[in-house]
Write a protein that binds this DNA or RNA. Sequence first.
DNA 1: TCCCAGGCTCAAC
DNA 2: GTTGAGCATGGG
Length: 308
Amino acid sequence: MNELKLNIPNLPFSLEHTLDSGQTFRWVQTGQWWEGVIQGGKVKVRQEGDALFCALGEGVKAQSLYDYFRFDDDLERVYSRIMKDSHVAEAVQRYYGLHLINQDVWECLVSFVIATNTNIPRIKLMISRLCERFGKKSAFEGKPFSHFPGPESLAGATQGELASCGLGYRARFVRSVAQKVRSGEVDLEELRFLDYGKARETLIESVLGRKSLLGIGRKAADCVLLFSCSKDESFPIDVWMARVLLRFYPTLFDAETASRLGTRVTNKTGLSGPTYDKISTAMRGYFGGYAGFAQQYLFHDARKSGLE
DNA sequence: TCCCAGGCTCAAC
DNA sequence: GTTGAGCATGGG
């Protein structure tokens, strides 16, 4: 095996916390190694202190890993901005070195269409089936693996074929999103160059009263912008975050908003658009431009500790 | 068997 | 504008 040693330029960095935090769904841990597919190629990585040992598949450059893990980020600086209270402080301490990642926009978009109303283990299952069934095949270290299927192949699949990967009612949405991207109606690469507000409008906009991307709501859009477009002020609010906000930050909201957060948690009813926006804007006001980091630490901590 | 899961669409009000 | 049913599926 052709092993490469990469120096991690900015510490802290934790490979495990980063890959285990629900930003991405295809990495598999085997022993001390993590295997994944990025930028069209397979990689195997393991961390030892400030060194990242990796084996790169065909077509993958070390720079791709550098970009993927956002090694330019200076977490200490981020921490100093978001450390507003003991709750983030504890989460930061527990998951010290958790990076936000910069994954492929298309893969991230499909992943979070699939991620609605389900749990992380099943998201992984659905995506791995999707890749096996529709992804291009390659080999790494003599073993076959599948790439993430492109817009063309998912747009060309029937709803039944997609559903057979366990997608259920999501099959329709995945197909529709794939068709919009294939046709060029929605330009994903452009998102990186827009500011957060504009990029978000692009993802959830309606044309003639009809949504352009079926299956993408506010929460999914925020995840895409945070995990694949480096919009660090994005603050996705799912059930877990609703619990966190209700438990630790109720004083940041007026009574009506807090009560709606409560029904989100207990009745599992969705937040209305304006209410979602009001809450995430408040959290951005509280944490600042790196609110997305705070969100990710709080989310991961809540999930790991089984907050109720 | 029932409940929950990184929500969203659609229709009714 | 808000609310609520319905949604496919697998694990606890």
